[in-house]
Design a protein around this nucleic acid. Sequence first.
DNA 1: GAGTATAACAGACATTTGTCTGGTATATTC
DNA 2: GAATATACCAGACAAATGTCTGTTATACTC
Lengths: 208, 208
Amino acid sequence: MPRTPPGQTRERIFRFVRDRLLRGDSPSLREVRDHFGFRAVETVRAHLTALVEEGRLDREPGRARSYRLPSLPRFHPVPILGEVAAGGFEEAVENPEGILPVEISDSRDLSDFFALRVRGESMIGAGILPGDTVIVERGEPRSGQIVVALVENEATVKRLHLGPGGVVELRPENPEFEILRPPPDACRILGVVVELRRTLGTRWRGRP
Amino acid sequence: MPRTPPGQTRERIFRFVRDRLLRGDSPSLREVRDHFGFRAVETVRAHLTALVEEGRLDREPGRARSYRLPSLPRFHPVPILGEVAAGGFEEAVENPEGILPVEISDSRDLSDFFALRVRGESMIGAGILPGDTVIVERGEPRSGQIVVALVENEATVKRLHLGPGGVVELRPENPEFEILRPPPDACRILGVVVELRRTLGTRWRGRP
DNA sequence: GAGTATAACAGACATTTGTCTGGTATATTC
DNA sequence: GAATATACCAGACAAATGTCTGTTATACTC
């Protein structure tokens, strides 16, 4: 293998490893060696060790395939809930429609998160359309935040307003919908919407 | 280790491995063994082999830490472009602001995808707000699709309408904005918006 | 030219990790 | 009760993988 200008091969190795890691598949030293046509494992190890020292990679010594991207946010499994309404909340978490990988800060409690598909057009004014997926964190919501609430056995996305004396208002962002003022015991705030995802397909092309 | 009811331990092992895999970290047999307090590696191997036969896990024999989730959509690295405007497009791809893992079908060409942060309020009617991140696939757009276009050296998100004779219309979805009818040589359609992501609130979110 | 840093190689070595063969115990089924 | 299936254990083994030590060559600096 001919000698290359300083840093050039290292950059190519970094990109190769990075792309493999983003696919969830950490390569072994020999796999990297073979990909670049090196003849010595040590060549790869030297480059990777340098990349770790530069802070561009992380690793655990003496472990197979342990290189990681320090800058890459870690994905955590968040259950996509189907019918929260009928059963209890915990049952819904135990039988998710699917799992969605979501970036969550390490300081948060993973079990506080879930995802929900949006029904209805009541939040169009906030850019939340039917069919969107919202990611929700359970916990005490503040006034003004967009929340998921369980009202009359149905999960609904609205903006929360807390009035004096603990009066709860759930405000839609669509003039065609009414503000909900449920009595405290008929309404349970499930959590705060922290992220929204939408896949654009062919379904709603040309919507007015 | 006491004997457990059939299937129960296997379920727990599956969940443990699944969660580790979603964090991008495939456990070794001995790591699983230690986590559950087994004394024999073979116990774990038997369970995992069964899970593979049930189709709940995938693996490559004779490879370290090679268990995978077959159901998990594969995430691919998509560059987040900063300033497309100034420089050329290829330069922007080479120097991304960050990398965003995106679910992409295997039939697509990974290098056709990029992500862009939305500026301006011209697409509020389509539920696309400033600050949102759109994921874009390069390629020939069809009339009616939401596209990213390069007009007067600035990337902009609009709905595309192709009129007779190849007339290009870029329609905002906000009554306060005008329809753009750029001459063909002053407008380059970069691609079609296929996904949208929005982070709400103060939750931490890392950018690599 | 001497010194130094970097790229790449060579090959032995140690550890991690997966594989295999056989065994014990507890249910369930016929 | 015999046969069968499953959960778990024990320990040897082999393959994959990371580690180490030493070497050669090229480029740059003083």
